[in-house]
């Protein structure tokens, strides 16, 4: 498989598939493909899981589109932002912000990962996607991406909307509600609804919710939301 990044503003990843190589992605990310490239589907999550996440206010696709066969596929997220290739060793795991994946090699395992950080009188879900190696995944940031390689014990506060990707070795020790959001987080029903939809674009309230992440491991933060 060969890949090229084309364009800077709203970049496209042009993938050349060879032999029996397969990649999977959200079905609405394809820009164009050669006719020889076939499209199939792959179940991403069980129906039960989808109903649960939907009830929590998070839209989840049940299927990925799998592209296979000799030819080109162009993939774009239709938004400005840097693209990064993340190579995973056997059984190494990364967590990615919900719906930031461009595509992944078929050898990479996938499962949704809903982190529940609910506390007394609050209901906070951090929706992530888990990818397990071996293989390579391609993700796109909103805007510019900054990488931090945290040493053991090093800590960083990142608003949850700005958290793009982190290794499985990186922990989230706490969810911090910065003022003025912390007032609403103490029991306001509407605020609880916003907490669940925390990754909804253009939700300024969610920017006041920080994840305290600690090393060791790699953390990617992006400047958009």
């Amino acid at each position: 498989m060969k890949t090229d990044f084309i364009g800077d503003t709203a970049p496209v990843v042009l993938v050349k598939l060879e032999g029996d190589e397969k990649i999977y992605l959200d079905n609405d990310l394809m820009l164009y493909k050669d006719p020889a490239v076939k499209v199939n589907r792959k179940i991403t999550t069980s129906l039960t899981n989808r109903i649960i996440t939907h009830a929590e206010g998070i839209q989840s696709e049940r299927y990925f589109a799998v592209f296979e066969g000799e030819g080109h596929v162009a993939i774009s997220h239709d938004k400005p932002g840097e693209c990064r290739a993340i190579t995973l060793d056997q059984n190494s795991v990364v967590y990615v912000r919900w719906q930031s994946l461009l595509f992944a090699q078929d050898s990479v395992g996938y499962q949704p990962n809903m982190r529940n950080y609910s506390k007394f009188m609050t209901n906070f879900i951090l929706p992530l996607e888990e990818f397990r190696g071996p293989g390579t995944i391609y993700v796109q940031a909103f805007g510019n991406a900054f990488q931090f390689n945290l040493n053991p014990g090093e800590v960083l506060d990142v608003p949850v909307n700005n958290l793009l990707l982190f290794d499985a070795t990186v922990g989230i020790s706490d969810i911090l509600f910065l003022f003025p959001y912390q007032i609403y987080a103490q029991g306001n029903a509407a605020a609880r609804q916003n907490e669940v939809c925390v990754l909804k674009p253009n939700s300024p309230e969610s920017m006041s919710v920080c994840a305290r992440v600690y090393g060791p491991g790699r953390v990617l933060v992006h400047s958009g939301r």
Partner: peptide
């Protein structure tokens, strides 16, 4: 203004 933070060190404290 609120809502513009991208990240901060833990040693940085916030007030309003």
């Amino acid at each position: 203004e609120g809502g513009l933070l991208v990240y901060k060190d833990v040693s940085v404290h916030t007030s309003y």
